[in-house]
Design a protein around this nucleic acid. Structure first.
Lengths: 193, 193
DNA sequence: GGAATTTTATACCGAGCAGTATAAAAACTT
DNA sequence: AAGTTTTTATACTGCTCGGTATAAAATTCC
């Protein structure tokens, strides 16, 4: 009962996610959000808490909707294919035409004021978690004899993540997908086929 | 003549640079700046123009003082050593204990509001210039037969820059120098010694 | 058709933002 | 010592920030 909602919560959250993705947490104002989402300020606070909670919800959506490729990549039987699919999946995400350039997890808050320190911490933790998941996958590969000899799984995971974070900066600077693919091909050359 | 200045311009600019480096352009307020620099608001405007001009002056200082390693690296006779010195020089810069983590050229404004669009553009242009300089160095190397066969100088330059930008994100997230060095060693494995 | 409930719309809050006007303080010039 | 010049200090501007109080609008229940 009560007055029916005049907007789609999922759609509004999608818009919020895209705004934060493009302008970062601090670069996106409440006016940007309410205007973009097509809702009023009290509605935003009623449904999403406050700006910080809205960002975390947007980040959660990003993880669930945009990071599917990552979880799929981890299931590849060969570690090299895992690495390639992770790198190319990130590059696709960072250069998709229908969404902002780069990564929300980096664009969101790389350097910021003290006011956004908590958000910054969450994003750093998120990147750490992804790197850890990749490292664990490479641990398994190592036990399976699926890694080049003398190759540390954790170092390899950090290397792969570093390259994706590099392509995120490149994408945020306007690099296109083809350029990133060339980078990825070079990055994978160290890995004997 | 006139009342003598009570602060050192160079020192104040250094502080401003470090603040922008740590908190980004938009994350650094004028109050942060005046407090950190130890000068009043009118002095800041009198000597440095406005916030935007101050940032550009800080960026210029960064280029002149912190990027020396890059210009020196370009003068190495062997391209592989150029690449290694560029990568390690950036890693050193990004993890120096006496200065903020990461790169001013990335932390400054990766994603931001429209108000900082001009600064963002300058930083993107700055990164493009660095990449171009490296590409030109590799062009020369290519003519000298100093590159692996079938290796595009521009692609190689983009690859190196992508890795340094990745380490910049890693450093901003708290990664230490040793970890970045391992990444760099892996990144250079694609390059036959 | 009220009454209760939920979501709107409008207007507002204090605080902090970048930037500035005004004048006092401290030097040099003559 | 008086006038000139430069740099300070204080206080202020208009504006935007994130967040909220209040009440009108639109539905369902009884």
């Amino acid at each position: 009962m009560g007055r029916p909602r005049e907007f789609d919560v999922d759609e509004a959250l999608q818009t919020a996610m895209e705004l934060f993705w493009r302008k970062g947490y601090e670069g996106t104002s409440l006016s940007d959000l309410t205007e973009g989402m097509g809702i009023t300020r009290p509605s935003l606070y009623g449904f999403f808490g406050n700006k910080e909670e809205l960002f975390l919800k947007a980040l959660d959506r990003y993880d669930q909707k945009q990071m599917v490729f990552f979880r799929e990549a981890l299931e590849e039987p060969k570690a090299r294919v895992v690495a390639e699919r992770v790198l190319k999946g990130y590059a696709d995400l960072q250069t998709a035409e229908c969404s902002p350039n780069g990564c929300l997890g980096i664009n969101g808050a790389l350097a910021c004021s003290e006011a956004a320190a908590e958000i910054q911490k969450c994003l750093i933790e998120g990147r750490r978690r992804v790197e850890h998941a990749l490292a664990e996958r490479f641990e398994r590969a190592n036990e399976e004899g699926d890694l080049p000899i003398g190759c540390s799984p954790t170092d390899l995971a950090r290397y792969i993540m570093t390259v994706t974070q590099g392509t995120a900066v490149q994408a945020a600077s306007g690099a296109n997908r083809a350029a990133l693919y060339k980078v990825i091909d070079m990055a994978l050359q160290c890995w004997p086929k």
